[in-house]
Design a protein around this nucleic acid. Structure first.
Length: 347
RNA sequence: CCUUCCCUGUCCGCG
């Protein structure tokens, strides 16, 4: 019905857990909480909004979960890092397919657990190119580009994603020759390939080459602009980064770029400029907050860093290490650690 | 029509 389509669209575009819960309550009020299609979207929404518990409870409410429901909940646990539970659900799943197995495999890949991934890959009833791609990723995440390459050459076929995976890994290391070689030999490219090439050139300090690649990129996405702006910022060209962003009409998707700029200011100890960037941002996510805190911390402005720490909506392990390294830089030893621990306890 | 693999920004470490 019409309302189903509306709810579906709303669930796909939820930006926060609170949004999602609100739509969930509307679904319930409309008497559609038994609808499997919407429940599947609810599971997905709760997963992407970070509430595994609520995803699970929607799944458990389903009288007859279908293959999508099962795969969504397996994926949710895998992405959350709970591979035990993901594997357990996979085992209980009466309709498991390659997607379910790949979801767990991707969980191992995300953790960089290569031997576990390999074992799981070997146990799978079926494999496809996505399974192979996950193996490549597992090696990359574990830090073994050589391992990734070995898997890559052994796999039965390549897709653009396969090539992009390897391309990006070499690119992030600034290995320009290897990156260009992969890029040149790709039969088909996507915008992801072009973006990875921008990053590769930036990492290698070749800012003009990065810009040339950016200019030649067909169908640029927000990530393209963000990568190019970050390239400028990291190479000491914050002004160019800003003016590039002003030419970009996708003004709501530039959080990454502004974070890169503020971080570049932070690296140079220009904390006021960093704060200015932060204040100008339309959206501020956890990474942006961490970037600001890190700027203060690195510059030795511990008091400001503590203020940010107190103010930010969420804290994670990066938040802690940023603050800790600020204390450490002041060389205050045990007293510093004790005070940092006090901050952590307050959460 | 809903599920699995790739690109952009934050700290530390490793190379």
């Amino acid at each position: 019905s019409a309302s189903k389509a509306v709810f579906a669209s709303q669930l796909r575009h939820c930006e926060s857990l609170l949004d999602g819960r609100h739509v969930h309550s509307l679904v319930t009020e409309a008497g559609l909480h038994g609808d499997r299609f919407l429940c599947n979207l609810l599971i997905q929404m709760y997963n992407t909004c970070g509430s595994l518990v609520e995803a699970r409870s929607v799944f458990d409410s389903l009288a007859e979960p279908n293959v999508f429901s099962w795969n969504l909940i397996v994926t949710a646990y895998a992405q959350h890092g709970d591979l035990q539970e993901a594997a357990k659900l996979l085992e209980q799943c009466p309709v498991q397919d390659t997607v379910s197995w790949n979801a767990v495999l991707a969980g191992y890949a995300q953790k960089g657990q290569v031997s576990e991934a390999l074992r799981f890959f070997g146990r799978a009833p079926n494999r496809d190119v996505i399974s192979w791609n996950a193996l490549v990723s597992a090696n990359i995440r574990s830090g073994s580009l050589n391992g990734a390459k070995l898997v890559f050459v052994r796999m039965p076929q390549w897709t653009t994603v396969s090539c992009n995976t390897l391309l990006s890994a070499f690119g992030q290391k600034g290995e320009l020759a290897e990156t260009w070689s992969i890029f040149s030999n790709m039969p088909e490219r996507s915008v992801v390939s072009w973006n990875a090439l921008v990053v590769a050139n930036a990492r290698a300090g070749c800012i003009d080459a990065a810009r040339q690649v950016f200019d030649r990129t067909p169908q640029r996405t927000a990530a393209s602009w963000n990568a190019m702006a970050a390239a400028y910022a990291a190479n000491g060209e914050a002004g160019k980064a800003k003016s590039l962003l002003l030419q970009n009409s996708v003004v709501d998707q530039d959080t990454a770029a502004w974070t890169a700029i503020l971080s570049a200011y932070g690296d140079r100890g220009q904390v006021e400029q960093a704060k200015e960037c932060f204040d100008c941002m339309i959206r501020r996510d956890a990474i942006a907050w961490n970037g600001l805190l890190s700027g203060y911390s690195q510059a030795g402005h511990i008091a400001q860093a503590k203020l940010v720490f107190a103010k930010m909506p969420q804290r994670d392990v990066v938040t802690f290490t940023s603050l800790l390294s600020g204390y450490a830089q002041q060389g205050q030893g045990q007293a510093a650690v004790a005070e940092a621990l006090q901050q952590f306890k307050g959460m």
